[in-house]
Each structure stands twice: as structure tokens, then as C-alpha cells.
């Protein structure tokens, strides 16, 4: 295993920041399309809430934002140094 960036090393497509931005913009557009798909697919879910427009998309988004923000706050209570149990 070698360490550190090597100037002669091959540059990958993802190494270019502009390409990453392009990828992310494409991803945003795809998410928007998926949301619109909701208008065309007939729903058969058992719960009324499933029939709301974009329920699954918005639920997934909200769930993950909540998850991350709560977990971030949990760090204040739970986080210790790495060698906490070894000391």
C-alpha cells in the first residue's frame, strides 16, 4: 500500500469536481421525475396515507433528515474518545 497523491497517477472521471456536480444535478432531476411518476401509477396501498401525493418520497426524505439530525445530537451525549474503554 502506498500513501499520498501521486502526480503521475491516472485521473478518474470522478476526480473532476465539475463531473461530480453534473452527476448530482442529474440525480436531483431523476428524483423530481420519480415524484411526478406518482401521478401516473395507480395505488393499491391499504393505508390512506399511502395515497397522498408523493408520500413515499417525502417520507423517505423526512425520515433520513430526522435520522441524521437526531443522531448528530446524540453524539453530544454518547460520544467519547476512541480509547474510552481502554483507559
Amino acid at each position: 500500500m502506498t500513501k499520498g497523491p501521486d502526480p503521475t497517477e491516472r485521473r478518474y472521471w470522478l476526480d473532476d469536481r465539475a463531473n461530480v456536480d453534473r452527476l448530482v444535478r442529474g440525480f436531483y432531476a431523476f428524483c423530481a421525475l420519480l415524484l411526478l411518476l406518482d401521478l401516473f401509477v395507480p395505488k393499491h396501498g391499504a393505508f390512506a396515507i399511502e395515497h397522498l401525493f408523493g408520500f413515499y418520497a417525502f417520507f423517505g426524505f423526512a425520515a433520513c433528515v430526522t435520522l441524521v439530525l437526531v443522531a448528530k445530537q446524540l453524539r453530544r451525549v454518547l460520544m467519547r474518545t476512541e480509547d474510552y474503554y481502554e483507559r
Binding site: D38, Y56, V65
Partner: peptide, 21 residues
């Protein structure tokens, strides 16, 4: 169709949350 759509929406919008955060 509705199960596949729902699951893909759930997952991609979860990924969207990750990307934005």
C-alpha cells in the same frame, strides 16, 4: 407497479436527503 414505484421513491428521496445534507 405501485410497490416498485413506492420503494424506488422512498430510496431515491432518502439518497436525496443524504446528498443535500
Amino acid at each position: 407497479p405501485d410497490h416498485v414505484t413506492a420503494q424506488v421513491q422512498l430510496l431515491f428521496w432518502s439518497a436525496l436527503a443524504f446528498a443535500i445534507l
